[in-house]
């Protein structure tokens, strides 16, 4: 590829944390409200988000465009790397390999998840109020649960390990001690975020969302 890749690489690293890292934390918190507050808590959280001003432009500039750049350029970065964990089976080299593998998985997962939820909203097939039931419907399929579990683990690892790499790439953690401490903190972030997402998958499967789903379905059939 021609041209200087210094700025795109720096931008790729920055966008992964700001805004995409902030977005994944927000997403985990919103989903977790389904675990903590059930149907009502989740509806309130969705309502809160949608009552934000200029929400469409925020989605576009804080989520969609950064994801598009980070995802497409990230695939190119993954293509530029050899995986040599067979010869060098060090922890950090495994993290390097997993960063690329989870990046590709996350790219596919996010594309599917975006189609399944945000596009369906835009097409008018689902309303904001029905999102909880919609997720319950999706998780009635065990394969979808498996796919979401893999996708969520990939995305949260990719973010947490990417945050560690961001701190190195921008020259914030320089020495081995700083990098070791930050790697522990980042793996802590991975565990917490992954647990929050997995608990929300578990919550969406509960009867509460199911009855709401069947109520919505019967309402549709009556209507």
């Amino acid at each position: 590829m021609k041209g200087n890749s210094y700025l795109p690489r720096k931008l790729h690293s920055l966008l992964g944390v700001i805004p995409l890292g902030l977005f994944i934390v927000e997403h985990a918190l919103t989903n977790y409200s389904a675990f903590e507050g059930g149907q009502e808590g989740f509806s309130d959280a969705i309502h809160l988000l949608n009552s934000l001003p200029l929400i469409f432009f925020m989605e576009m500039f804080i989520i969609w465009l950064p994801i598009l750049f980070h995802g497409v350029y990230g695939l190119y970065i993954a293509y530029q790397s050899d995986l040599n964990t067979g010869r060098f089976s060090y922890g950090r080299n495994w993290a390097f390999a997993w960063q690329r593998i989870t990046g590709v998985i996350t790219f596919i997962f996010v594309a599917w998840h975006f189609y399944d939820t945000r596009i369906q909203l835009a097409l008018g097939n689902v309303s904001h109020e029905e999102l909880g039931q919609h997720m319950n419907n999706i998780f009635s399929n065990p394969w979808a649960i498996a796919a979401y579990t893999v996708g969520v683990l990939a995305a949260t690892f990719h973010f947490a390990n990417g945050l560690w790499a961001f701190l190195v790439s921008w020259g914030i953690t320089i020495g081995p001690r700083a990098q070791k401490i930050s790697s522990r903190i980042c793996m802590g972030i991975f565990v917490i975020l992954a647990a929050m997402f997995l608990l929300s998958i578990f919550a969406f499967r509960s009867d509460e969302f199911a009855t709401a789903a069947s109520a919505a379905l019967s309402a549709v059939s009556v209507g």
């Binding site: 041209g3 200087n4 890749s5 210094y6 690489r9 720096k10 970065i77 530029q80 790397s81 040599n84 060098f88 060090y90 950090r92 080299n93 993290a95 390097f96 390999a97 960063q99 560690w164 790499a165 190195v168 790439s169």
Partner: peptide
Amino acid sequence: LMEEGGIEGCGNSQN
């Protein structure tokens, strides 16, 4: 180092 073919390609594998 900030030109093409400089520092930017480091992927932090630390091998």
